[in-house]
Amino acid sequence: MNPIGIVFRRELASYFATPVAYVFIVIFLLLAGWFTFYLGGFFERGQADLVPFFSFHPWLYLFLIPAVAMRLWAEERKSGSIELLLTLPITMLQAVLGKFLAAWAFVGIALALTFPLWITVNYLGDPDNGAILAGYLGSLLMAGAFVAIGSCISAATRNQVVAFILTVVVCLVLLLAGLPMVLNVLGVVLPQFLVDAIASLSFLTHFQAIGKGVIDLRDLLYFGLMIGFWLYANAVVIDLKKAD
């Protein structure tokens, strides 16, 4: 088996070896439901779509994904097992990718478990299932970017709480950069092209674009590059700090 696959399997299994996985999945599903039905007004809107469900995902991920990603490397450094992992015959890239993919797949599992909502909306009406699929894809890609950021920051510290807080802050900045409220304020002091540049760096902009059901190559590329950049930084950080 490929070393990435071996690391992936071990890492994914380790989520389920502790209560973390179950707590995360239950909280994720409860919050997703609560946001959709109460804050999103799923029934009141009277529309057969999952817009109220997806529109809260960025805020749900903001707190839940850092909690999933914080242990990826901080735990290895704290327990010293990083020395074991990196003296096994695998490359740094394989280790980083295997761990990242495991955390991403874990979030993916939680996301997939929201399928009853999809069944519900199909039972109640006649939704655009293509748009829903696009929404899931956008959500998964955004989750990947969150996980990559969390993984990189987790490598910079051996303290999981520090990793969690820093990841939340970085992700928050990347989310806020796309809010109309923030962009309007920035528009007063900055020239328009800079405001556009900031907006185009935000998760929200690209997530919402995909969520409309239009899968644009640029949005896919954005998340791809975002994940690639943070994972590359992740490998660099480990190389610099692994022995501290």
Partner: peptide
């Protein structure tokens, strides 16, 4: 590094491993 690591068995200081496994 990969060739060297394949030939090597290494017990790091403190014998770290994955506690939950």
């Amino acid at each position: 590094p990969l060739e060297a690591k394949r030939e090597l068995g290494y017990l790091p200081e403190g014998a770290p491993s994955y506690g939950e496994m």
